[in-house]
Amino acid sequence: MEEAFIKIENVSYMYEENDGFAKIDRYAVKNVSLEIKEGEFVAVLGHNGSGKSTLAKLINMIYTPTSGKIYIKGRDITDENMSDEDIMGLRKTVGMVFQNPDNQLVATIVEDDVAFGPENLGIPSEEIRKRVDDALADVGMTKYANHEPHRLSGGQKQRIAIAGIIAMLPECIIFDESTAMLDPVGRKEVMESIIKLNREKNITVLMITHYMEEAALADRVVVIDDGRIISDGKPIEVFKKEKELRDCGLSVPQCTELVHCLSENGFDIKGECVDVVSCANMIFEALNL
């Protein structure tokens, strides 16, 4: 069997919380095991405070797990002997895009910002030039190369942040609720870029989100609640269990919900759907026009 790109084994992460009276230990992530294959597009779904962001930060070594092991390409990153170079190598391999586009752009000019990562890696300037141009082309922002980031829209800024990660030539990108602060147009732009990177460049994508519609676009959905994985599978299988999802404060995509409602109320609709087109087709067949 081929080796998993990311392998998480019984990982827990505990932090101290002060509730005003005493300090109590709380698990943000509890005994989680997960394997992600190379080139996979995985969505991690969970409501606020479910531990999904913590999980992402553990993979990128921003946090160190309290217990358990994490392997990336077979390398144990929880090993205490990881040198600074190893950590840099890891962060180059697994890039991360955050929630607030404003808080991850460093430079005052778009192309300088995209160049920030490769510059830190000590790449020769001709090579940086090429990478910056390629990365901007990948996210469709070439014509904004000389703009100032603060004049761009949220979706555009987030695409610049993605370009900044692509320029380091990562094999995997983690998106930590990267669409949460964007308007619908910006969300669509960013999602298109993410899907394109996954399909065309075979970049492994781990997308943390709480939007059901976005999770439905992934190859695989992992649902996290209270620090534990409660469901893992193809979107269509995960969203089948609508009740379970609702119990942990989540919902299902609107079209899935529509089909469920129709079948409960006596319509002759069988099967599942997670996208609008197949939903429309199913209703069309059920109506039997």
Binding site: G95, N100, Q104, V106, G117, E119
Partner: peptide, 26 residues
Amino acid sequence: SRAGDLATAMECRCYQGGEGRTRLHV
């Protein structure tokens, strides 16, 4: 809080100070 976020983002982009850094525009 922005400063905290930015520091994390910079670390994720392998920032380690000026040593060994190259430049896009030379």
